[in-house]
Simulated scan of single mutants.
Amino acid sequence: MTLPRIAPMLATPGALPTAQEGWAFEVKQDGQRALLHLPGDGSVQLRARSGADITAVYPELHSLGAVLGEGVSAVLDGEIVALDQGGRSDFELLQSRMGLSGPPAKAARLAREVPAHLILFDALYLRGDTLMHLPYAERRRHLESLVLSGTHWSTPAALVGHGTQALEASREHGLEGLICKRLDSVYVPGVRSRDWIKVRNKVTVDAIVGGWVPGRGRLAGLFGALLLGRREEGALRYIGSVGTGWSERERAVLADLLRVAAVDYCPFSTVPPIAGAHWVLPRLVGEVGYATRTRAGFLRHPSWHRLRPDLAAEDTD
């Protein structure tokens, strides 16, 4: 059967709700968002946040298509992660799997080396009926009734009404943070809603790379710092530079990407007063941690965390 194509609902960055009784709290996973389509014939299709078909990338998840039983159709929402030795999601590990192209044998090999795990957290469509108009709490009951738990997928419980304790526990265990969801909220496809709030244990921003400055000494031939921006009212505003946070391998990979993206004009709305700057097409997105911002909006004490190949520059508004 043909299942509906649904754009995932998105969370708004923020702080814990003051009154927590009407909220559920889920661990914020550090992976790739995925919509799971199960038509009820034993097959499975995975679609990324962008809508791209990523089924072939994760062969270890294909057997999930037969778990619900013949004739049981569903569209489920979740996050594909790679787990570190402590059982925490590790985006850097997952990056070796994302955007994979090539023969099935390559995907199968990587599935053995870096196995993926699907964290399920919402049910949008089940047995021929849409569930998106139902409150979150009721959708969760439908999801949990499917009892989806296995080597490569699970349905972790959501904690209701105790967000402060949940956030403290996430810090103690080195987790990224929480997603807070109103128990009475409906699912609004493609919308970044205040009914879902993401609370990070670290202050980060998804920034667009608009240029770079050359490195010196041992970094000769590579970049020394990246020039960052954010989309504001259709323009790319410069928010500062970042010069730390990469491993040697990450720096080399980024240097190759910068060479491919080189242009001879500044993509920022106002040219930063930086000598020797090189400019690139503003399409690479990175997650950058920082302490605070200046009154002018520039990042203070920034540090590069990771490249975000799962985000397009348009998604960082």
Rank of each mutant, 00 (worst) to 15 (best):
I179R: 09
M9F: 01
L281M: 11
G78T: 13
L254E: 11
D84H: 10
V205N: 01
I197Q: 05
V188K: 13
A108G: 11
E314Q: 12
G150D: 07
L227T: 06
W153D: 02
M132L: 11
H117W: 02
K28C: 06
A312Y: 14
A157H: 14
A291Q: 08
D317P: 12
G224F: 00
F268I: 10
L254H: 09
P302R: 02
K198A: 08
S89G: 07
D184Q: 13
V205P: 04
L311K: 08
G31F: 05
W23T: 01
T55S: 15
A74P: 01
R141E: 14
H62C: 04
R88K: 14
V44W: 08
V57H: 13
T204G: 00
K106H: 12
G161P: 04
D77F: 12
A56G: 06
H301C: 02
D30Q: 08
P302Y: 01
L36G: 04
A261T: 07
V191F: 15
T155S: 14
A291V: 11
L299N: 09
W153L: 15
A19G: 11
S149D: 14
V188C: 08
R112M: 03
L227S: 03
S63P: 06
A116E: 01
L46N: 06
L226S: 05
E113Q: 15
G221L: 08
S101I: 13
Q32P: 02
A15Y: 04
A56R: 14
M9A: 04
E248V: 12
L284W: 11
F91G: 04
K198D: 06
L143N: 03
K202A: 15
G215I: 04
V280I: 01
P4T: 00
A7N: 13
S96C: 07
S247Y: 07
V285C: 08
E144T: 13
P156Q: 07
R295Q: 14
T316L: 10
A252F: 10
L3V: 00
A111E: 07
E250P: 08
P214A: 15
L159W: 08
L311Q: 10
P282A: 06
G221E: 00
S43N: 12
A107K: 02
Q32K: 09
G163L: 09
D129M: 11
A66L: 07
E144K: 14
F223R: 01
A15P: 00
E176S: 11
G210K: 09
D206E: 15
R308C: 10
W196T: 07
R283I: 06
L46H: 11
D256G: 15
P103N: 05
F121H: 02
Y58E: 05
G22S: 05
E113A: 14
V205W: 09
G211R: 03
L228E: 02
A15W: 02
H117E: 05
L10G: 09
H62F: 09
D84G: 12
L120C: 00
E92I: 06
L68M: 08
G234E: 00
A34F: 06
R230K: 12
L3K: 05
L35N: 11
A66W: 12
V147D: 14
L126G: 10
D310P: 07
T292F: 03
V67K: 14
R141L: 13
E60K: 04
I208R: 02
